[in-house]
């Protein structure tokens, strides 16, 4: 018997889409552990997002406190660890976002809990399958500590559906908040109206062959036509063509959209690790020998300068007929 404490990120009075994958895993885990899903919302705006969270979890705990104006691992981890113990949790989980990856191992240390990162599947109550070696192998790990910590790979768990009845919302105290001297200074946000890379159904990604940031504009036109998120290879982000948080790959975002366009991307294994779970992969590259063609469902050997504007015009035509 044990409950599942699902740390959930939220924005604008609702759970983030990425958190719904966490809830989906938490429900599976709750069934296996004979407990219930408890969604935990911490920080500024948690109360406002709690009604939205209650659509997905039978129990929601809110921790909102003036001493928690911004996320810091130092202040959040003790709260999560304490609430895990107070609520009989045997699993503490979050989506493997930048925040989840920063927070949950620190929580695990405070709980002396073994941890499985970025899991794709639950096999037994404390047995999980996770990618290793840039996704070139899957390791099944069994953890023997009383509490286990987990981060969930968003692309491997379908978003949870709403429950029939709203869950119960309670509040918990933050307790003593000590940032250990750490301070949040600022966020240089990448402004975008496009969907989050991790949530998008379609991703348009460019690589080194795009040559410069200006050339990405044509890919952005394609993305906007398809309601897609923008992505990039490490070569393109390292060269400063596009923001770092567009990077798809082993060390960037892991995505699995319905449709992935890899334009002027060679297909290094680190990039493939981040996108080979996509349902349909289209590669556009002028060099037919690039490894990207080995994972592509549809390959077009053509310069992007010619292919992408044509693609935009053909898709517009197709849309006009519908």
């Amino acid at each position: 018997m044990g409950n599942i404490l699902a740390f959930c990120e939220f924005q604008d009075a609702a759970l983030r889409i990425s958190a719904l994958s966490n809830i989906a895993f938490a429900r599976t885990a709750a069934a296996a552990h004979g407990g219930e899903v408890i969604a935990l919302l911490v920080g500024a705006g948690a109360q406002a997002a709690s009604a939205g969270a209650a659509k997905y979890a039978g129990k929601v705990i809110v921790v909102e406190d003036g001493a928690l104006p911004h996320y810091l691992a130092e202040t959040y981890a003790p709260i999560v660890a304490r609430l895990a113990k107070e609520n009989g949790a045997t699993v503490v989980t979050a989506t493997a976002t930048a925040l989840g990856k920063d927070l949950i191992p620190r929580v695990a240390a405070l709980l002396d809990a073994g941890m499985a990162s970025d899991i794709k599947e639950m096999k037994g109550t404390k047995e999980f399958v996770r990618p290793i070696l840039a996704g070139n192998a899957y390791s099944t790990v069994e953890i023997t500590t009383p509490i286990v910590c987990v981060t969930v790979r968003q692309s491997e768990f379908e978003s949870a559906a709403e429950l029939g009845a709203a869950g119960a919302v309670t509040t918990a105290a933050a307790g003593t908040v000590d940032a250990l001297g750490a301070t949040f200074e600022k966020l240089d946000a990448t402004k975008s109206d496009r969907p989050d890379l991790g949530d998008a159904k379609v991703v348009v990604a460019g690589g080194r062959g795009m040559k410069n940031g200006e050339n990405f504009k044509v890919l952005e036109q394609l993305a906007d036509l398809l309601g897609a998120a923008m992505g990039a290879s490490r070569a393109a982000t390292d060269a400063g063509m596009v923001p770092a948080d567009w990077q798809v790959g082993q060390t960037g975002k892991i995505v699995a959209p319905n449709l992935y366009f890899a334009v002027a991307i060679s297909g290094a294994i680190q990039h493939l690790a981040g996108m080979k779970g996509s349902k349909t992969i289209v590669a556009i590259n002028k060099n037919k020998d690039e490894p990207i063609f080995q994972v592509a469902d549809y390959g077009l050997v053509m310069e992007w300068e010619k292919a992408v504007p044509e693609l935009i015009s053909e898709i517009k035509k197709l849309k006009a007929t519908r």
């Binding site: 070139n136 390791s139 790990v141 023997t144 080979k276 992969i281 549809y298 390959g299 077009l300």
Partner: peptide, 22 residues
Amino acid sequence: VIKETVVTLPPPRAAGQLVADV
């Protein structure tokens, strides 16, 4: 406290196709 029970390799992706034009 964390033990690897087994490692598997992912199935290869089905072969794709080259298309002639846009």
